[in-house]
Each structure stands twice: as structure tokens, then as C-alpha cells.
Computed example of a mutant assay.
Amino acid sequence: MSLEEMLEKEDLGIEILHPGGLEITKDLAELCGINEKSKVFDVACGTGESACFLAETFECEIVGVDASPIMVEKAKKKAKERGLEGKTTFILADAHKLSFPDNTFDVVISECTLCLLNKEAALREMVRVVKPNGCVGIHDVAWKENTPRELKLKLKDIEGEEPETIEGWKRLFEKVGLVDVVVVDKSHLIPEWMKEMRRQVGLWGELKIFLNILKKEGPKGLKNAWESMKIFESSHTGYVIVVGRKPSKE
């Protein structure tokens, strides 16, 4: 079990599972041109914190999907508590096989999740459902150019994550047909995020996580969790915002 899965299943009071918090969500929204007229699609919406924030801040309409029933229920509950049921919709869905028609949304975003998916397949679905001239934007983990292959394989084995380099993310966006691709290096957020996660979880939360890992996976699971933390704290791990535009129809 990865640390992310543990944080999902344990009630540790953490609503945002990505670096940069709502500030990077706002940065992404502004780069994508989200406004009160936008119909936005949030792939892997998690607890719905970002979706609710966008609905409140930009007054946009937003649909969030996630593969976790736990997260979808949390998101629905949060939207109801904040009076956002008319602005938000949350649905259980697979990011690789979206049920929405082509050209449905003005903007499609995904926060710190694409590296966990089949990146190209999920990104092609995001491009399919966005309207021509609409934006597709993400922020996600990005390897530094000199990252050893062994480190990349270790993270894939432990967490199931396969980040690209910053240039690799740009090339992937261009490969699926997006144009005017913009990348913003946000690597400075990683160490801040690790400190903030520790602060939010607290000593008791950390102990609870590690005891659960020990119970379910034994010493090897603890070792993997420790190594995962060290990878994210290493100088090889960066972070990036990537935004591209779907070309208009000929």
C-alpha cells in the first residue's frame, strides 16, 4: 500500500494531497483561463477541495470524477456543506474511459494524478472531452533531467508513479495534439509540501500510518514507505504546471 492510498483511507484531516495547496490550483485555473462562464472538468478530483474552491473563487460550473468511491462521497458531502450543489457534480469514473461526449468542457484539469495513470491514454481522453480552443492543464511530479533510472524504477515499484521530466511532460502534451504548451517549474514546492504534510498529520498521524503499514505489509512495507519519502525529499524530484490548448477545428 502506498502512502497516498493510506492517506486516502485514513481520516487524518488532510483535504489536499498535492504540493502547493490551493495556491497552485489557482495558478493552474488562471493559466487555463477559468472564469464564471467556464464549464470545468476535474479528473481525479479527490476530496473535492479544489473543485469547491474553483466554484467559489471563479464562480464556474465544475464536474469532478474520481476512481475512489470514498473520495467521491467526501466531495459530495463537502459540496453540500458549502452550498455548492448547484455548481458542482461529482461522479465515480475511470479517467481512461470517460463517458462524456467529445467537446463537452471549456477546461479540463487534473492535479497530481496523471503520473499514476496511463498518462497518454488519460491525457487523450482529457483532450477528447475539451472543446476546440479549450485548455487542458495539470500540475504533477516531474523528474529532474539527471535522475538515475534506478530511482525512477523504485518510485514506480513503490507508489506506481511514473513522472516525466519537465520537457517530457511538454512533449507528451504536444504528442496528443495540444498546442501553445506552457510549462511552469514549481519544483520549490516539493520540500515545502513534505514539511506541511508532516505538520498536518502530526506525530500521532505518522505513527498511525506506519503502524497500519506494518500491520498490513510488515517490515518491507515500512521500508518502502520510508524510501518513498526519501525519493520525494531528494534533489531529483521536481514539480511542474503544464497547460496546452486544443486546436480549433479546421
Rank of each mutant, 00 (worst) to 15 (best):
4 E>H: 14
17 L>H: 11
18 H>T: 06
20 G>A: 05
21 G>M: 06
24 I>W: 09
25 T>Y: 03
31 L>D: 10
32 C>M: 03
32 C>I: 00
34 I>K: 08
40 V>P: 01
40 V>A: 05
42 D>G: 09
44 A>E: 06
45 C>R: 00
47 T>M: 04
49 E>K: 10
49 E>H: 02
53 F>N: 07
54 L>D: 12
55 A>M: 04
56 E>G: 09
56 E>D: 05
58 F>H: 00
60 C>P: 05
60 C>M: 05
60 C>N: 01
61 E>D: 06
63 V>G: 12
63 V>P: 07
64 G>I: 00
65 V>S: 01
66 D>E: 05
68 S>M: 11
69 P>T: 03
70 I>C: 10
71 M>T: 07
72 V>H: 07
72 V>W: 07
75 A>G: 06
78 K>V: 10
80 K>M: 13
85 E>H: 03
86 G>C: 01
90 F>N: 01
92 L>V: 00
92 L>N: 02
93 A>L: 04
94 D>S: 07
94 D>K: 13
95 A>R: 01
98 L>C: 11
99 S>F: 13
102 D>M: 01
103 N>D: 12
106 D>V: 01
112 C>F: 00
114 L>A: 11
115 C>P: 04
115 C>L: 09
118 N>S: 10
119 K>L: 02
120 E>A: 03
120 E>H: 09
121 A>M: 07
121 A>L: 15
122 A>E: 12
123 L>T: 04
128 R>G: 01
131 K>A: 03
132 P>A: 11
132 P>I: 03
133 N>S: 14
133 N>D: 13
135 C>E: 08
135 C>G: 05
135 C>R: 12
136 V>D: 06
137 G>R: 02
138 I>Q: 10
139 H>F: 13
142 A>K: 14
143 W>L: 00
144 K>W: 09
145 E>Q: 08
146 N>R: 15
146 N>Y: 10
150 E>T: 13
151 L>A: 08
154 K>Q: 15
158 I>R: 07
160 G>A: 12
161 E>Q: 11
163 P>A: 15
172 L>W: 06
174 E>R: 13
175 K>A: 13
175 K>D: 13
178 L>A: 12
181 V>C: 12
181 V>N: 05
182 V>Q: 11
186 K>V: 04
189 L>V: 00
190 I>H: 09
195 K>M: 15
200 Q>M: 15
200 Q>F: 08
201 V>Y: 07
202 G>F: 03
205 G>R: 03
205 G>A: 09
208 K>S: 14
209 I>L: 13
211 L>S: 11
211 L>F: 07
214 L>A: 15
215 K>Y: 14
215 K>A: 02
215 K>S: 03
221 G>D: 09
223 K>Q: 13
228 S>D: 12
235 S>R: 11
239 Y>L: 06
241 I>G: 01
241 I>Q: 10
242 V>F: 04
245 R>N: 14
245 R>F: 05
246 K>D: 09
